[in-house]
């Protein structure tokens, strides 16, 4: 589902990723860890084509990202749900509108979209906050809105960048439960984190990034 072959990415002449190769099976859940600045976010951004690699090969489902045309990028992104570290919520839109946006972009009819938003907000425990603005929510609640927005389109791949970064252990556990539920539905889940508590005893593969290289 996710395949990196000798991927190289430079920032300002310095290698952020150096000959990175790994492979994630369809429906697998895995973790990406490493110290701050090791390239975790860069690697995820390469997957949803927010960055372009200098060389190597990246395959996501049937998409060869280095050959991808600009017009095809939106269609790749509809298949890759992303839980951003900085949330990227629209502050002037309600929780419902933020989550619904994914479906609107995909052209889902409004009635179906309304039903799916309701059930997804229920999944992340935010049904009662659907009319609130993101600024009226706590960090953990905002994180759950982002997760709802990422999973509502039933993406083949779900990426999460430090999804429990600033959350207390209990909220972190709740959020991990949501990821497990999405994974159980068949999605490939790839979570970048520097918190070992998330992947220890998870039974999932863990990839470690260090000095631009990767090991598992």
């Amino acid at each position: 589902m996710i395949k990196f072959d000798n991927v190289v990415k430079y920032y300002d002449g310095q290698p952020a990723l150096n000959n990175v190769s790994f492979h994630l099976e369809k429906g697998e859940m895995a973790f990406l860890t490493g110290p701050s600045g090791s390239g975790k976010t860069t690697l995820l951004r390469l997957i949803y084509r927010d960055e372009v690699a200098e060389s190597g090969r990246i395959i996501i489902a049937d998409w060869d990202l280095l050959k991808l045309t600009g017009a095809s990028i939106p269609y790749l992104r509809r298949n890759v749900g992303v839980v951003f570290q900085d949330f990227k919520l629209l502050p002037e839109r309600t929780v419902r509108e933020n989550v619904e946006l994914t479906l609107r972009i995909q052209g889902v009819p409004s009635e179906e979209a309304r039903e799916r938003v309701t059930s997804t907000l229920k999944l992340v425990g935010l049904r009662h906050k659907s009319d609130a603005l993101p600024t009226q929510l706590s960090g953990g609640e905002q994180q759950r809105v982002v997760i709802a927005r990422a999973v509502i389109g039933n993406p083949a791949v779900l990426l999460a960048d430090e999804p429990t970064g600033n959350l207390d252990p209990e909220t972190s556990k709740e959020i991990m439960d949501v990821f497990k539920a999405v994974h159980a539905k068949g999605a490939t889940v790839f979570i970048a984190t520097h918190d070992p508590a998330l992947f220890e005893h998870s039974g999932c593969r863990v990839f470690r990034l260090n000095h631009g290289g990767i090991s598992s």
Partner: peptide, 15 residues
């Protein structure tokens, strides 16, 4: 900022 987010969610340029 909103446009950047829409693009990341898979919006086409015409959307």
């Amino acid at each position: 900022n909103e446009i950047k987010i829409l693009k990341l969610l898979g919006a086409t340029s015409w959307f």
